[in-house]
Design a protein around this nucleic acid. Structure first.
Length: 185
DNA sequence: GTAGTGATCTTCT
DNA sequence: GAAGATCACTACG
């Protein structure tokens, strides 16, 4: 797994490295591929992180170490996809630019508007067919779900995270400037 | 265009 | 019992 074999010193840095990388899912109905354009870092001593209050049944994958998929269910109807980093830390994938399997994504999302296919954490799990089954999956070359090294975006913007009620001042959200497929501006 | 709210249910307090 | 790393729809301007 190219991304995780390279040295990164922090989860923050991994969040930046993941921008421009490709998210690939080989489903039974075909290949789905997209380019990551928006991420958020969640650290260990981070009030907004699921791992803040320690290991539980739900967040145990966050404690696996680097390179696993941490998928969690929230708001009674949505799944979100993270890539684990150091023990107790992970990067939330918030948005992806659709590249391949767009017809499949449209079907999964029940919309024809390409801009709305993957422009949000719960949207992209729907479009990619990612569910709780994928929680704890290791994202290497052999896996059906994986991340491939991509081209780094030119302009990366750093802002506060979205949808949280604590640690709002932390600048742990990163996205490619000007990209149409991010979740917000 | 923005603002507000209902959906829906697991997880943790 | 309450809140939640969200989304889609409606109302209004």
């Amino acid at each position: 797994m190219v991304v995780f074999s390279c040295v990164y010193k922090s989860t923050i840095q991994l969040a930046k490295e993941l921008l421009g990388c490709f998210l690939v899912h080989e489903t039974s109905k075909g290949l789905i591929k997209g380019r990551i354009v928006e991420t958020e870092a969640y650290l260990r001593n981070d009030e907004a992180s699921h791992s803040f209050r320690g290991k539980t049944e739900r967040n145990k994958t966050m404690f696996n170490g680097p390179g696993f998929a941490y998928v969690y269910f929230t708001y009674g109807m949505h799944n979100c996809f993270n890539v684990t980093s150091k023990v107790g830390e992970a990067v939330l994938i918030r948005a992806v630019e659709p590249l391949e399997g767009i017809e499949l994504m449209k079907k999964n999302r029940k919309t024809d508007i390409v801009r709305n296919l993957c422009s949000g954490p719960a949207k992209l799990t729907q479009a990619f067919g990612i569910s709780l089954k994928h929680d704890g999956v290791f994202l290497d070359e052999k896996s059906k779900l994986k991340i491939l090294k991509g081209n780094k975006p030119k302009n990366v913007v750093k802002t506060t995270r979205v949808g949280i009620s604590s640690a709002k001042d932390k600048l742990y959200r990163f996205y490619e400037k000007g990209n149409v497929y991010i979740s917000k501006n």
